[in-house]
Amino acid sequence: MQKVNNKWIKLGVEILLLAALFTLVQYLITAGLLKQYYQISLASMCINVILAVSLSLINGFTGQLSLGHAGFMAVGAYIAAIMTNMLDLPFIIGILAACLGAGLAGFIIGVPTLRLKGDYLAIATLAFGEIIRVVLQNIDYVNGPAGIMGISKLSTWPWLYGGAIITIVVIVNLVNSSYGRAIISIREDEIASELMGINTTKYKVLAFVVGAAFAGLAGALYAHYFYIIKPETFNFLKSFDILVMVVLGGLGSTTGAIIAAVFVTALTAALQSFPAIRMVLYALILIIMMIYRPQGLMGNKELSMKTFGRIWGGRN
């Protein structure tokens, strides 16, 4: 009984903290106390959290190195922009269509490529991501390389924050279930997993599709925050950006991915005027992390209130 009570108390506190953060930022924005620079940073943080958490499902939990995440983001961004800007549909329809479209793209790409292993898979997903970009460049309906301009700014704080929270909740709940254990077992030993009765192909595709769908969500939010989308925005360097966050946070840690996404976004914002230095730093982070701490900041552990309790309480 005690255990059950604790669970609900924990959930209550979590919801309260999240709501407090939401209200605080919302108040600062409406009261005009938050500078443009910080508003943009917060929006980018939400979008990057969605991207990092969704990629961490594929790279971290399933152990399938995907380098094409920006491609799914592009699919979502374009679909959402077409829906709202060209077809005058409501934002929510645009978002749902973006998730569905990106998820479908994930399915189409995932089914054939997920048979491949390790570095072959990485290269194939990179190639598919680039193909999405090149195809977008060649579609006149979306203005080819020039992209879509003048997208209405519909991504307000509630949408951005809500999107990030929904992504985290869905992926955390998925990972902490029998389905999640099946997914993680693929990372640990694919052959053993298959022989223990797990349809590894199905679960790899599932993780890939869910990850892609949320990348689509991130794309939709991005398009409606930054007004402009161009195919070039979603090249493989963008995929590497997301990879940096996942690797830095720890392959197999959602909280790690969130912390890293926030940190990397802040770093990016701070180094806005020095893009070359920013990329050199990213590069060094990747190399040094892999050599000295390949498990990332968090390894495959999660940061929880229990961890805080331990730190504060001084108990081991």
């Binding site: 152990g63 590497f240 990329m279």
Partner: peptide, 20 residues
């Protein structure tokens, strides 16, 4: 190390050479 770790390092080296 794992193949993935090595591949990520190689990506890091690539970015480093380009942006340095």
């Amino acid at each position: 190390a794992t193949r993935i770790a090595a591949l990520i390092t190689a990506i890091g080296v690539s970015l480093f050479l380009e942006y340095f």
